[in-house]
Computed example of a mutant assay.
Amino acid sequence: MGFVELLTTCAILPICLAGQSDPERHSLYYVYTALSKPVNALGIFEFTAMGLLDNRKIDYYDSKHQVKIPQQDWMKEKLPADYWEKGTQSRKSKEQWFKVNVNILMDRMRQNQSDIHVLMWKHGCEVDKMPDGSVKFVRGVDAYSYDGNDFLSFDDASMQWVAPVPEAVPTKQKWDGVAILNQYTKGYLEKECVDWLEKFREYGDKELEQQTRVSPPNVRLFAKETRSSNTLQLTCMATGFYPKEIDITILKGKEVIKEGDIKDVLPNGDGTHQIKLNVEAQRSDIDDYSCEMYHIGLEEPITKVWTLDGEMCDGTSSFLIGAVFGVLTVLILMGILMFIAHRKGVFGKWTTGNNPDPR
């Protein structure tokens, strides 16, 4: 449902703004990323792992610091030191496991160390919290990607692994041959993961409720010089909004030049979201351009117009968030596409200590 249709519906049924008659969708995922070799780039590590509750980072680990740390105050307050100690050991074990299996995959695909290769793993679950307070399991995710492409995923219904590429078939056959492990994976996705999700939601109830209330976007316009002195890169950025559904458009006069898409919306880490749109324009035409925005948190649409005396940026300090997005784009182009993944003893021999728990 688009924003206009939603707004019309809410005008007739105001209760929809509160969402009291509809189930609330919640998720808990753990994401692991391993590179085949170190990268000389700020903030990019050979191995990282993080927990995400409703797309908010709740814990984090990387190969440089090698400590699992809380990313939410309520996680630090509610969970004992033993939880974080065991979690650190578990993440260290997984780091070594990933290092071994990236090499196994490179050998299997006849690749060498000249390029960077990426193995990713995401596992977790989604639930609907019903109006009566009950919780309904929606789906579980347990899958791998390699160099940004689907490699292996678990079909919860059939309790079988799905291999979309020939190189994954040997692993599928090996794992499907151990029925008890497939039963364990199904049990984790449908029961244990759901239990942890509910526990975390209970721990952070007040903070999460505050983070997820309707919040309008904060909108800023930027202009950045390009290689041509006559051309500017115009950027419209909206941040701090919730929910994530937003309509954002750049216009020249009344002509739509560019429209935002839901896939362009990224999380801020505090429960809110952000999005930016870029277009190039002639310096002489800058005051013909505007950014128009619709969001459920706004009483009326926002329209802002670029001017030459507006906020300019040099691509560094005031445009830091854009730079971060640039890094993310590079990672995606490198094949570091976050996809679903998780499993014990992956491509080589079965290993121990890799249970899919939130530690």
Rank of each mutant, 00 (worst) to 15 (best):
D150V: 02
N55W: 07
Q96Y: 01
R343V: 11
D155I: 00
P358W: 06
F151I: 00
Y188A: 03
T212I: 00
W196V: 08
I286G: 15
T307A: 13
F151M: 02
I104C: 10
G271P: 06
K64T: 13
T352C: 08
V102H: 01
K186F: 10
F154M: 11
I321W: 05
S317M: 07
N218G: 12
E46S: 12
R108G: 01
M106L: 04
R201P: 02
L13C: 08
R213P: 00
Q183N: 09
N40M: 09
D107Y: 02
A163H: 06
G269E: 12
D22S: 11
N55Y: 06
T212W: 06
G297R: 14
E311G: 09
Y146H: 09
S21W: 01
D82I: 06
S229C: 02
L221R: 10
T303R: 15
L79H: 04
A168T: 01
T329W: 12
L328A: 05
G335D: 07
E255C: 01
P164E: 06
H123S: 13
M237T: 05
K349H: 07
V138I: 14
Q211L: 04
M130A: 04
N230C: 04
Q282S: 14
Y29G: 02
V39Y: 04
M120T: 14
K76Q: 14
M237Y: 04
S145G: 15
S63D: 07
R201T: 13
K304L: 14
M1R: 10
D309V: 04
C291Q: 09
L52Y: 07
